[in-house]
């Protein structure tokens, strides 16, 4: 069903100024409406602009076509990690995804993130994602108190380099949505939580490093990863969770022999 759209005059004017023809000024946007159990894609016609992100498109629909559309965003500049959605069935940060990059014959399909329960429309329940983040030992435990001297950190030191590799994670859950192992094994902690665990394992300022190897060695732990690499391919910040998980596998295997060797 095609939704009726109250297109404002200035929207069209922007299109004409950009030198676009009538045919190319409208995008056909399919948006998921409803929950995971009960819903369908609904088609909206959205005015096209020269510079336009997927988040702009979703915001336009919510502001001018259907105010009941539910979605989540905050910073709009790729820092907060809250606007991730499935765009043409691939997880993306929508505020930094240009429409032109994903448009297929004027059409684009926008859905809620995979592998997480849908609350409504494009908003998913992130509880499971963050619960696993904590279960993997991801909460920071300081190794020094407020009154203690600040220990020096050498940015070139081997462990620090490994820790620094993952600290730009914005917890957008794109890697979690991209992971086929999570899709098949809902108990699996997932790439973001395990990368966080690897980061803290290599962080000299974290005081619970010994517990991390136990936290990632359970039935949903790092050993379930098949190294398919979707997490690393789709990470919008170019991080490498797959290698972080490989690091956890190596360390847990070493720990396995160390414990048996006394």
């Amino acid at each position: 069903m095609l939704a009726s759209i109250p297109v404002r005059l200035w929207e069209h004017a922007a299109g004409w100024e950009a030198g676009l023809t009538q045919d190319t000024t409208v995008l056909e946007v399919s948006v998921w409406r409803g929950t995971a159990l009960d819903g369908a894609y609904e088609l909206f016609e959205v005015p096209a602009h020269e510079n336009q992100t997927i988040l702009d498109v979703v915001s336009w629909i919510q502001q001018y076509a259907d105010a009941s559309l539910t979605y989540r965003f905050a910073c709009r500049v790729g820092m907060c990690g809250s606007c991730a959605m499935m765009v043409n069935d691939q997880p993306r940060w929508t505020c930094r995804t240009h429409v032109k990059k994903v448009l297929k014959d004027r059409r684009v399909r926008i859905g809620p993130l995979r592998n997480l329960p849908v609350i409504k429309d494009l908003a998913v329940d992130m509880d499971r994602f963050f619960d696993k983040w904590v279960a993997a030992g991801g909460a920071h435990v300081p190794s020094a108190g407020r009154g203690d001297p600040i220990p020096a950190v050498d940015p070139e030191e081997s462990a620090r380099v490994k820790a620094s590799a993952g600290i730009e994670c914005i917890n957008c859950s794109i890697c979690y949505a991209a992971c086929d192992t999570v899709a098949g094994n809902p108990d699996y902690l997932g790439p973001a939580a395990l990368q966080r665990a690897w980061t803290l394992l290599n962080d000299a300022k974290h005081d619970a490093r010994a517990q991390i190897l136990d936290a990632v060695s359970g039935t949903g732990g790092c050993h379930n990863c098949h190294s398919m690499g979707s997490c690393t391919v789709f990470c919008p910040n170019d991080l490498d969770p797959m290698s972080a998980i490989a690091g956890l596998k190596r360390e847990t295997a070493r720990g396995f022999f160390r414990r048996r060797g006394g």
Partner: peptide, 12 residues
């Protein structure tokens, strides 16, 4: 589902 024990057993 696959813990460290089973993982190590499969690798060994």
């Amino acid at each position: 589902m696959l813990d460290l024990r089973l993982y190590m057993l499969q690798r060994i």
